[in-house]
Every structure is written in C-alpha cells, then in structure tokens.
Amino acid sequence: KLLSSIEQACDICRLKKLKCSKEKPKCAKCLKNNWECRYSPKTKRSPLTRAHLTEVESRLERLE
C-alpha cells in the first residue's frame, strides 16, 4: 500500500492505542462500548529543516 492511502484509526482508538477496525460511521470498538466515534483530519507533519537536523546532530555528539 502507498503511504498516502493508509487509513487512520478513529480518535479514541488512537488515543487509547487500540486496534481500530476503521469502519465508518462507527468502528467496532466504539460501537461495542457506545463511545462517540470521530475521525479527525490527518495532520500534516512539517518537513525537517536543516537547522533542526544540525541541532539534533550536535546534541547527539555531546551525549556520545
């Protein structure tokens, strides 16, 4: 599967780190437990900047 097509777990399953069936409108866990089942939009991760990478590398060197 391509990364862009990976389905996201519902908010509660993601928060509780449960295996989500990803069914809509309610996944199996939410249906069974009568929880409100919501699927928040995916958040875009910002790409690493060179400055951040350099900072992490220098912190790693100090720890070694």
Rank of each mutant, 00 (worst) to 15 (best):
K1G: 15
L2C: 10
L2E: 14
L2R: 09
L3K: 01
L3V: 11
S4D: 12
S4N: 08
S4E: 14
S4H: 12
S5R: 09
S5W: 08
S5Y: 10
S5E: 12
S5K: 07
I6P: 10
I6T: 12
I6N: 09
I6S: 11
I6E: 10
I6H: 10
E7S: 10
E7I: 10
E7G: 10
Q8P: 10
Q8T: 08
Q8R: 07
Q8A: 12
A9Y: 02
A9F: 00
C10T: 04
C10G: 02
C10W: 03
D11N: 07
D11G: 04
D11H: 04
C13G: 01
R14P: 05
L15R: 07
L15E: 11
K16H: 00
K16Y: 02
K16A: 00
K16D: 00
K16E: 00
K16G: 00
K17E: 00
K17P: 02
K17Y: 07
K17T: 02
L18P: 06
K19V: 05
K19S: 06
C20S: 03
C20N: 01
S21F: 00
K22E: 04
K22T: 02
K22Q: 07
K22M: 07
K22F: 05
E23L: 09
E23P: 04
K24A: 13
K24M: 13
K24E: 13
P25R: 05
P25N: 07
P25C: 02
K26S: 11
K26L: 14
C27A: 03
A28H: 12
A28F: 08
A28I: 10
K29H: 04
K29M: 07
K29D: 04
K29F: 04
C30R: 03
L31R: 15
L31Q: 10
L31G: 14
K32Q: 12
K32W: 07
K32V: 11
N33W: 04
N34G: 11
N34C: 15
N34D: 13
W35F: 13
W35K: 11
E36I: 08
E36M: 12
E36R: 14
C37D: 07
C37A: 06
C37E: 00
C37T: 00
R38D: 13
R38E: 15
R38H: 13
R38T: 15
Y39A: 04
S40L: 07
S40I: 06
P41G: 09
P41N: 07
P41C: 06
K42S: 09
K42C: 07
K42M: 13
T43I: 15
T43D: 11
K44L: 14
K44N: 10
K44G: 03
R45C: 02
R45V: 00
S46L: 00
P47A: 08
P47Q: 05
P47L: 02
L48P: 04
T49N: 00
T49Y: 06
T49A: 01
T49D: 01
T49Q: 06
T49P: 01
R50H: 02
R50K: 01
A51E: 08
A51V: 15
A51Y: 09
H52W: 11
H52E: 07
H52I: 02
H52F: 09
L53R: 07
L53H: 03
T54Y: 07
T54A: 09
T54R: 06
E55L: 10
V56L: 10
E57M: 00
E57V: 05
E57F: 07
E57C: 04
E57P: 06
S58F: 13
S58R: 09
S58T: 09
S58C: 15
R59S: 08
R59C: 06
R59F: 02
L60M: 13
E61Y: 11
E61N: 10
E61V: 15
E61I: 11
E61P: 02
E61L: 15
R62D: 02
L63M: 13
L63D: 03
E64D: 08
E64Q: 14
E64R: 07
